[in-house]
Design a protein around this nucleic acid. Structure first.
Lengths: 353, 353
DNA sequence: TCAATTTACTAACGCGCGTTAGCAGGTTAA
DNA sequence: TTAACCTGCTAACGCGCGTTAGTAAATTGA
């Protein structure tokens, strides 16, 4: 590997001169002739600066780390790819770490040891621990899609209220008055209470109230998700979604004429549960999803759903992180929202009389 | 940031002693007492070794780079995630780079400058250039899912023949004799001819011959794909797939009773084109896909398709790369195949008389 | 008792680079 | 004529670490 010393020798100058020229430092006093000689030597020898050494010497890195707890989940990688694109546009490189409940502390330490300039965390729980570790090392932190705003770092959230509002408006336009909700809760967070499910339920109630509709307690149910491992998305894991759907259907005459689900997968399972119970979708009941997975437009019926802006979330997280990397380190929390959009397909229709 | 010097001071020893203990070097002659003192000091001060400096000093990196040309494509990220998992299990970290025709040379240079220990390339074309660059820097290269084996580095391929063979066997069992093929070609490769489409067509012919079936030239068509950008997977891009399907359907009485498509997306478009032409799937014609996208099981009818082992491809690529990283550098080509599997769903059925 | 060995370390160099201080020679201004 | 300044560099230090050579003191062996 060619080093600066090699090209200094070839150009007949000192290594310092080479460093000055290659970093084209102003006021270094290297005249054009010498400058050209050095550059030509560098090109001729195929010199490539060692970024590691550069980082050690300068104490700065243009690398950012990305922690994911569910790498095989479609929303996860869409967010990653958004982050990757933004990072590259801003001149950073992205290092991805997958994380389990057992390994996530160790992974954060790895990031510290690699002296990464900043960290994006896309986790289900465990943010507190990540913060403690990064804060100690003075590493800026951005948290993406955590459900609720965190009391540290830059939290980047989808503005679910916008999409949810549009969804309910859509249902109201179809004449629906009684709308049920299947929330999603995680019983096995890394470390902490599950306030996410509750937050979602509040969000739903607020959105309903905005349209002058009330939500009986029996209309709000919750599926319980096992968090880790590739089985997250399989139907086998969604037994509780079936139970939640059946609970709503069993409410008799006063049952909801529409159901909002927190995830597209939940909506798919709910629809299947409805059909199996002899309830047609959307003729007898309308179902709304959340996420807009690639499979959702191929589902029968194609899902009406709130598109979560995964790509934009990743981009925003990186952008906010870079802001923090440029400034003095601060653990102060900030929150940034990215709008979501409702897209009407065929799982919703006019309310039955 | 705490350094070795800090903890040497605290423990009352030299920095060398600290280095010896923390790397628990054999025969360093540090007695247990001193050893404990140093370790305690390190823990107490929350010492984290600077892996960058370590890499500079030792000249070795446990980082591998991953170049992707189509990061938003489902098979791409499945492969990435496989690679990530394998890398972490082997104690490496993964740096992902997305690549366009304009930036891919620059990205390879970045990898060199970061002194990455090895590179996985998941590209459509351009392998030759990547090889030249990495070979000059003596960086091991693994190429994943390139369609055909490359004359350098470790090529990791899906053994499509296995799945294709199973698919044709499946069709033959349903009584099909006349099977058409819609291949996929890339007109805009990074640099070079498109021999991939041709290779696929040969593969198909061989598989058919194996089952005693011949393939008239008119049975083999090809869709032409625009390569880059997020529009790759949209239906808008698949006009040529519609044309290819119509060409097969227009063959009149002697037309194929089954069609194999090189991609699931192609199969979806082909099915739609059939239905629009009044040809029912699978009653009048059977259609087989390739890939097994997550949407494919939700498509109507659910696609019979060859599952490509994306995850395993990524894992294999990293494993082969790590082999090369351990040994003396060599540009010699090797090829590694990962089996594929056929999964029968509802887009195939008995041949019509 | 004294050389030979072992023990327990330290000093010093190098990795490739960024950066600051400074120096020799020429030019300018008073 | 001499101090002040500019030009065109170089010497030297430091980043945090791995590694080799070496050294003073303690121990051993004959």
């Amino acid at each position: 590997m060619i080093t600066m010393t090699d090209i200094a020798e070839k150009a007949g100058v000192s290594r310092s001169a080479v460093s000055f020229v290659l970093n084209n430092r102003p006021n270094s006093g290297i005249p054009e002739g010498t400058r050209q000689r050095i550059i030509e030597a560098a090109i001729e020898m195929g010199y490539r600066p060692n970024q590691l050494a550069r980082a050690v010497a300068s104490g700065k890195t243009r690398m950012i780390g990305y922690l994911v707890s569910e790498p095989n989940y479609e929303p996860s990688w869409k967010t990653i790819m958004g982050a990757l694109a933004e990072a590259e546009e801003l001149g950073f490189t992205l290092k991805v770490f997958s994380v389990t409940r057992e390994t996530f502390v160790e992974r954060v330490r790895q990031c510290v040891e690699l002296r990464l300039g900043g960290i994006v965390a896309s986790l289900i729980g465990g943010h507190q621990v990540v913060f403690e570790e990064t804060n100690r090392a003075q590493i800026p932190l951005a948290i993406v899609d955590a459900g609720v705003a965190q009391p540290f770092g830059a939290t980047v959230l989808a503005d679910d209220a916008i999409g949810l509002d549009a969804a309910i408006k859509h249902l109201v336009n179809w004449g629906h008055q009684r709308v049920g909700f299947i929330s999603s809760g995680f019983p096995q967070l890394f470390g902490g209470q599950d306030d996410i499910g509750t937050a979602r339920e509040r969000l739903f109630s607020r959105a309903m109230k905005k349209h002058g509709l009330s939500v009986p307690a029996s209309y709000v149910t919750r599926e319980t998700m096992a968090v880790f491992g590739p089985e997250v998305d399989t139907e086998a894991n969604l037994g509780s979604a079936i139970a939640a759907t059946q609970a709503l259907l069993s409410l008799g005459e006063g049952r909801p004429t529409a159901i909002c689900c927190w995830r597209d997968e939940t909506a798919m399972v709910a629809i299947r549960a409805c059909v199996e119970a002899g309830v047609r979708v959307p003729e007898d009941i309308s179902v709304v999803g959340f996420s807009d997975l690639s499979a959702s437009r191929f589902f029968r019926p194609p899902l009406s759903t709130v598109q979560s802006p995964w790509d934009a979330l990743g981009r925003m997280a990186v952008r906010q992180l870079c802001h923090r990397m440029e400034e003095e380190f601060s653990p102060a929390p900030t929150t940034h929202r990215v709008p979501s959009h409702f897209v009407a397909r065929q799982s919703t229709g006019p309310a039955p009389h």
